[in-house]
Design a protein around this nucleic acid. Structure first.
Lengths: 226, 226
DNA sequence: GCTTGCTATTGAACACGTTCAAAAAGAGGA
DNA sequence: TCCTCTTTTTGAACGTGTTCAATAGCAAGC
């Protein structure tokens, strides 16, 4: 069950109306931004009454979530393709996040609306909520694959926690990117490069006995995150 | 210039009205939560018209920010006292965050309202905004002191970046704590312990030539964060 | 005491997200 | 074709954060 779609059964006609509303909304969000677009604007652009928008979407923000869901599904094969034949871990991680940035780019500004309730795991639209669990877990799988296909052997005790950790870092990077006002988001570019570099280096070093105590604490920390 | 206080000059009478409004607001926030309290509730509890609330505070959330500011000022000496005579780095860091958790505890639930726009550095109430810079920098000083008074010698190239990094981690911990539904926020307790442990261990190890390349990248990463 | 100008206070009005009862449109029999 | 039940659509109404023009209060100068 999708967190944003309300009608369980839907006729083809209803499906048309739904996508007309979503398309109108996304166009307006892109043109003038999320906050500057009213539900009345959306309804009238889609040529329906306000109520219709709420018949198909729980809230204004749920429209953005609907976009995010479709995006995540659509990115799946692109990511597979981008991972193909790469063996270096950093390059593989890079491939995953690059696909996302590229896909999200035209919608960067309004994606911020999704993260407004991000911190509150009770909020249905939070990336940490029960309602978004499926999307989240599907997304973590990408990192799982990125790890498994690389030529780097990982410590076994750390391995189960890594997808979650990488996914979390990715959320941080996306967040930074959304609000990055530098030309062409150059700062994000640097941040991505350096942080993936660190992750890869630390993972390489993590097998060394030298870092064993730190690794143990790190694992406990990751467990505390649930 | 404070980010939330509007009148530049203020008579004693005005000051009284202002604090009556703030007190009424905080009481209501504590009793029934931020979202369940309306500006009309606040105004009538403070026995003023709605307009008066907006004369003194830019927005509903600015009321929470006013609390946060006062809190930060009030915590300063408590933190000094808590740091006194401690030399172990982890213990010193712990002392800083403990004071905060203790002080914030009765207001934990409504503090979440402040972090709603946290991600957007353009928003005046974001912890990363121009408007909140003073508060933020004063707060970072606490970590600076925690570092300097410890018996651990830090690598010089890393030192200038550490207060910002620690402050950032602290924000993450507070965020986690605000939404931590576990009994007595036990999960936060574990998270704090482990993460300060890791920070302290890594700082101890950071001088080793073994970690030199990682340290270099880490510094570049911190620079990318500005 | 009166005037002038600033500070403080008022509350109606506005904008916008959201709800909901009612109407319209369809689908499937009889 | 007509009746019945479900799905879809409508738009007025509501609640709440916020604005703003108007008013009251007050201090200083004359």
């Amino acid at each position: 069950m999708e967190p944003t779609a309300k009608p369980a059964r839907s006729t083809p006609k209803a499906e048309t109306t739904r996508s007309r509303i979503l398309a109108a909304a996304l166009n307006l969000f892109r043109e003038r931004g999320f906050d500057q677009t009213t539900m009345r604007d959306i309804a009238s652009a889609a040529e329906v009454a306000i109520g219709a928008a709420y018949y198909y979407f729980e809230s204004k923000e749920a429209l953005v979530m609907a976009f995010y869901q479709e995006a995540n599904a659509a990115m799946h094969e692109r990511i597979q393709a981008a991972l193909d034949r790469k063996t270096d871990l950093k390059a593989r991680l890079r491939a995953v996040v690059d696909v996302k940035f590229e896909y999200f780019a035209p919608n960067r500004k309004f994606l911020g609306a999704l993260l407004r309730h991000a911190a509150d795991p009770e909020h249905p639209l939070s990336p940490f909520s029960r309602e978004t669990r499926e999307i989240r877990e599907r997304d973590m799988l990408h990192f799982s694959e990125a790890l498994d296909g690389s030529n780097l052997r990982l410590p076994e005790d750390l391995r189960p926690h890594l997808p979650k950790l990488l996914w979390l870092s990715q959320m941080g990077l996306i967040l930074f990117w959304i609000y990055d006002r530098s030309e062409n988001q150059a700062r994000t570019e640097r941040l991505v490069d350096k942080s993936l570099g660190i992750v890869a280096s630390l993972l390489k070093l993590s097998k060394s006995p030298f870092l064993r105590p730190v690794r143990r604490t790190a694992i406990e920390l990751l467990q505390a995150l649930e």
